[in-house]
């Protein structure tokens, strides 16, 4: 019996010391980690709204949204061209969620796409969805945009060779972003 108490007690002490050290590390790093995530999001918003004339950053308003596993936030800005929306979406790609910021104007057209995190995708293949060469193809696309393997129609984009799953995930995210912006507009009108 005494043996068990000694073993358990020793483990308890080790665990307590480890917990203490972890608490200190968490305390030191938590603010920085939160700041880095926020900075990445703000940078992406600026990127996707770059082409819009006179975006007023002080008018950022977080819009209401329906529960959705893909859309994580919708932010509205006022500009000289009317309302514009920055929608953060997380569609599931080949190796986990891909985080994308999508800029949508009030005509529900895509005005900018910035891939924030595609680290789960295969390097050299799926990871290329983050490059402007691919994301720029979505600019000007409208509701119902789709990614196809070949012969893209008017509202379609051709997937990257060897990266169909990643390409389609990005397309799905952008499609959802447009729908989310539309939803936010209608909720507000009512």
């Amino acid at each position: 019996m005494r043996e068990y108490i000694r073993l358990g007690g020793t483990l308890c002490i080790i665990a307590a010391v480890a917990t203490l050290l972890l608490a200190v590390a968490e305390h030191v790093t938590s603010e920085r980690i939160a700041a880095i995530a926020l900075a990445a999001e703000i940078k992406a918003m600026q990127d996707v709204l770059l082409g819009v004339d006179g975006v007023d950053e002080d008018t950022a308003t977080v819009m209401p949204q329906e529960d959705d596993s893909i859309v994580s936030s919708i932010t509205r800005f006022e500009s000289n061209e009317g309302y514009v929306y920055a929608v953060n979406v997380n569609p599931v790609g080949y190796g986990g969620p891909i985080e994308i910021m999508v800029g949508v104007n009030s005509n529900l057209e895509v005005i900018g796409v910035s891939v924030i995190d595609s680290s789960g995708e295969t390097p050299g293949l799926g990871s290329r969805v983050a490059e402007a060469e691919y994301t720029d193809k979505f600019i000007g696309k409208k509701k119902g945009v789709a990614v196809v393997k070949r012969d893209a129609g008017e509202n379609q984009v051709v997937a990257l060779t060897g990266a169909t799953i990643s390409s389609k995930a990005v397309g799905k995210g952008i499609k959802k972003a447009i729908e989310a912006a539309e939803e936010a507009m209608t909720i507000e009108k009512n």
Binding site: I14, A15, L21, L22, V28, R32
Partner: peptide, 23 residues
């Protein structure tokens, strides 16, 4: 069991430091 706690503790600290300083 003691090694697991020690190692896991240090790994978590390294993970947090990387996230904060080398994101």
């Amino acid at each position: 069991a003691a090694y697991v706690i020690v190692i896991a503790g240090f790994v978590t600290i390294v993970d947090l430091l990387l996230k904060a300083f080398l994101p």
